[in-house]
Design a protein around this nucleic acid. Sequence first.
DNA 1: TTTTATTCATAAAACGCTTTAAATAAATTT
DNA 2: AAATTTATTTAAAGCGTTTTATGAATAAAA
Lengths: 355, 355
Amino acid sequence: MNKRVTIKDVAKKTGLSISTISLVINNKGNVSEETKQKVLQAIEELGYYPARSARSLASRKTGNIGFILTEEHFSRSEPFYTKIFLGTEFESRAYNYYVLLTTVPTQFSKSAIPRFLLENNVDGVIFAGKINQKYVKYVEELGLPYILVDYDLSGKKVSAVMIDNVGGGEMATDHLLKLGYRKVAFIGGDIEHPSIRGRFEGFKKALEKAGVECAVDMCVVEEPDTRVINGYRACEKLFTKLKPEAIFAANDAMAIGCLRFLKEKGIKVPDEVAVVGFDDIEACIHVEPRLTTVRVDKEELGVVAVKHLVEMIRKPNSGINRVYLPVKLVVRDSCGAKKKGFYVFDDSKIDESLI
Amino acid sequence: MNKRVTIKDVAKKTGLSISTISLVINNKGNVSEETKQKVLQAIEELGYYPARSARSLASRKTGNIGFILTEEHFSRSEPFYTKIFLGTEFESRAYNYYVLLTTVPTQFSKSAIPRFLLENNVDGVIFAGKINQKYVKYVEELGLPYILVDYDLSGKKVSAVMIDNVGGGEMATDHLLKLGYRKVAFIGGDIEHPSIRGRFEGFKKALEKAGVECAVDMCVVEEPDTRVINGYRACEKLFTKLKPEAIFAANDAMAIGCLRFLKEKGIKVPDEVAVVGFDDIEACIHVEPRLTTVRVDKEELGVVAVKHLVEMIRKPNSGINRVYLPVKLVVRDSCGAKKKGFYVFDDSKIDESLI
DNA sequence: TTTTATTCATAAAACGCTTTAAATAAATTT
DNA sequence: AAATTTATTTAAAGCGTTTTATGAATAAAA
């Protein structure tokens, strides 16, 4: 086990002080070009690389970013937040950061405070998804820069990377209206969630724009959350009294729940009812019929979050960043556009690369 | 921005030296019960938590685990390795470690050496999947403990967590034989890969056990890798000359490729040909017919890897750990067992939780 | 030539802990 | 009471960097 090469060795080899070596490494202060080259060469020859822990201790910069999400979001097997996380992992490498992930319970508790915060082991924090406000407050009090992803705090101006939910909801509904459907229903759950609410808002906006009435009983929004089973139930409620021509579900999971209910009842999709979802999860291309949806680029959410957070770390007090990521309509089979001769998004390549 | 509480503050408050505080924190040395309690209380009251960087520097323990996989494995969208990674993330929290992830190119290059190795920022390393031997060698020379997941190094006894590929291949083939199929084919790609080879081996073992001949042209193993498209091609090759009753594909992706080919040709599954895959990826329950396969618990691979690695970190020279994780046959629709009245694995709950 | 700027390099303190040899105090033996 | 053990506690030396105030050397200005 060969001894670690330290800054001292570089100093000794070049005959300079360790201060000078440090200045060269960090590209700071006034160092003549000549000595700079000498140092760089010595570093190269010795294979020197500064130790992270020593650097962190002295500079009070850890080189880490914390990623916090609720246990619930982490364990759900549909990898929505997982993908956001992987996006941050990927992007952070470009900025020479590592991402430390941790989950927290939905309820705040002192003992659940992420260890990397207690240990002073991150330079900034990303919160993904719905999160208890107290966690955010704690981070704020530490004086750490932070950014929210796919969530927003009401009554508080914070940095955030959000999905254009309103635009997406509008887009999906516009599409259904364009296909000639007039009796269009909305299905949602956890309606207090900013994202779901935004999608609902977009839905209503599109109807209004088109001069189509938005009947109250065409909007089923009482479900507690947005899983498949609740899509199933909401659809069931809807069909007890009404017969919509089209359904816009707040997310793909609920849309798949609809498909399931409709298949059981022998109601043909899209012939009798059109269905559109939101998110574009992988299951969309596997269900029958393949689900038309609004694509959210999950990795990109993570990428953008890291970009902004790093900027906030580098120049503090740079103000608040709020970004809305655009979404994209992906037309497949469940909306009936294909039969009507409309343009259909080609995702065959995505299909291929899938596995 | 309130000043950070340090060990000095605790020392001052208790009237003890910082050495004593440190000993209490680390539960080392001889400290009387009385002072220990006094210290613990002061720590509690001050809300003290040792700084990671200072600790790392002094103790030469970083509290981090490195996770290395090839770029290729990271970017493939089927989240096989991603799940392993999430398993390590999850488990490492139990041991108070953080996982630093990095990807490396397939070919070794000096400039691609993970930064956390250069910076001395990990206490041990997990390699996931096929990896260039030179990376492993580099880590070994650093004197760091390491463990391989889902890969093995020929001619080298290293710690590893492996899938019971042979057992799984045997299980799948046994199942097909039990259902009465005799003309059973094997489809594989990247046959040099230890996992694929193991599955093939299990296949042959089962046939031999049953006294069924393993014809050479019933084994298509020339494909360069195991993606859907190559499953499609291999199946095509197979059917130009032969008509097997059943196919065991080296993984689900290739099995899905088979399904695709067979659907195109109008060959009914499982009525005319039975298909069994390996891995149990999510697409299995979405394809038509749902794919019978051998389930690999990916998260568990990560969990077990962390467990062993932490043990190796804690007591060096504890020897080499080699673990084979058991697999499980998941019977769905593509093998024809259902129709023949065999037991069918119930994954409805998994279906539900999926989204 | 002397004074003032400017450029470059360094000494030394700090960052917040761990670790070990040594000091001290208390308890036990002789 | 002195000597020896044993149990606690601490001083001090790191760990490997960053970061300033200071100093030396050189160049420019007076």
